[in-house]
Amino acid sequence: MNARNIAVYGGGILFGLGLAWSGMTRPEIVLSFLRLDDLGLIFVMGGAAVVTFFAINVVPKFMKAPALGGAFRPRVSVLTRNTLIGAAIFGTGWGISGQCPGSAVASLGTGNWPIIVGLAFMFLGAYLRGRFIRDGN
């Protein structure tokens, strides 16, 4: 384990704690958001994005580079057809199951063993994407 991976692991503990605290590890809560019965998820994504906004846009004005090396680069990407087609497919799966990648992984830590089925099929979906869709646009 190098320092970078330990830092990632430590930050990941907070990430997982927040996912469990906010109930995102429970597909039922995510589904009640998507049925518009409980809009709390907006505060989860919004709260996380606002805090992260400061890390990405303000902290680099005071620090030249990340403490453990590397460089500060915002997460920007080029919009392609696949960005939107993929997001539509993801959204459909999200609406069917109430799972997304991070919440499903963290959910394992709450003792939610049936989520293993969801994770196994996420791996299968990621494999099929690499197997059958050519990279690029």
């Binding site: 799966g93 999200w94 997304c100 994770l119 099929f121 994407r129």
Partner: peptide, 12 residues
């Protein structure tokens, strides 16, 4: 749902 999430997020 998991299948679509895995495929869709990696395409997107």
């Amino acid at each position: 749902g998991g299948l679509l999430v895995g495929f869709g997020t990696r395409l997107s």
